[in-house]
């Protein structure tokens, strides 16, 4: 027959062990990502029938428009800060020129019209093309997007920023539908200094152009 003293001592060891296990599990739970850039994501998708390896002319606007569900399409578009806007546009230009594509004015019948935009909440793939009425060559009222042969993923989130780059084929507009033949989306947390954010955007755009079909 075991003594009460022994039993009590054993129970104290048990309590100590349970506490040790609790501390062990809590303390050793896997770490989450620690840096803002650890959350950065680059997503691309494209129309499989389009031949990206050919040489094309393209046009780029001077600004990156800010997408917002509440903006009236008849109002002039709002642009994002020029610091970010300039960085985005010059990085896209750098990558497209490196592919041998040639930049032309939007009134010189470009093959590809590149449309950079940004937003900070829901992912707005199907935003109203009326946002680009001031820029896109040709008539625009009532136009829509279509994604030939593919469907872009849907992403949403809070306190995040997204840069959306759409390449549209101006020669293949059908029934007032604008074919988006490539899209690249950079998503990340809206934190850090401007220079830090710009370097993350630059890296993201470079990364997007390493993906298929450009790789």
């Amino acid at each position: 027959m075991k003594s009460d003293k022994t039993m009590k001592s054993n129970y104290n060891i048990l309590k100590g062990c349970l506490f040790f296990v609790y501390v062990l599990l809590v303390a050793c739970y896997p770490n989450e990502p620690e840096n803002v850039e650890d959350f950065d994501l680059v997503y691309t998708n494209y129309a499989p029938e389009f031949t990206f390896q050919d040489q094309y002319t393209y046009s780029l606007p001077d600004g990156v428009i800010k997408l917002d569900d509440d903006t009236d399409e008849n109002e002039p578009p709002e642009f994002i800060d020029t610091n970010f806007s300039d960085a985005i546009i010059s990085k896209i230009r750098e990558n497209l020129n490196a592919k041998g594509w040639q930049e032309v004015n939007e009134n010189q019948n470009p093959d590809i019209v590149v449309l950079p935009s940004a937003f900070n909440q829901n992912f707005l793939y199907y935003y109203n093309p009326g946002y680009w009425g001031w820029y896109y060559p040709g008539c625009f009222p009532g136009w829509g997007w279509y994604y030939p042969g593919y469907s872009p993923g849907y992403v949403s989130g809070f306190k995040t920023g997204t840069v959306l780059i759409q390449m549209t084929s101006a020669n293949d507009i059908q029934d007032v539908q604008v074919p988006v033949i490539w899209l690249g989306a950079l998503n990340g947390l809206l934190q850090g200094s401007d220079s830090y954010t710009i370097s993350r955007i630059d890296n993201g755009i470079d990364q997007a152009f390493t993906h298929a079909p450009f790789n």
């Binding site: 959350f39 950065d40 994501l41 691309t44 494209y46 129309a47 042969g149 993923g153 993906h211 298929a212």
Partner: peptide, 17 residues
């Protein structure tokens, strides 16, 4: 990591649990 599914490609830091 960079992963491709059909025409979609995604790049980012990946953590598996």
């Amino acid at each position: 990591i960079t992963e491709t599914f059909g025409t979609e490609t995604i790049s980012g830091n990946q953590y598996n649990y």
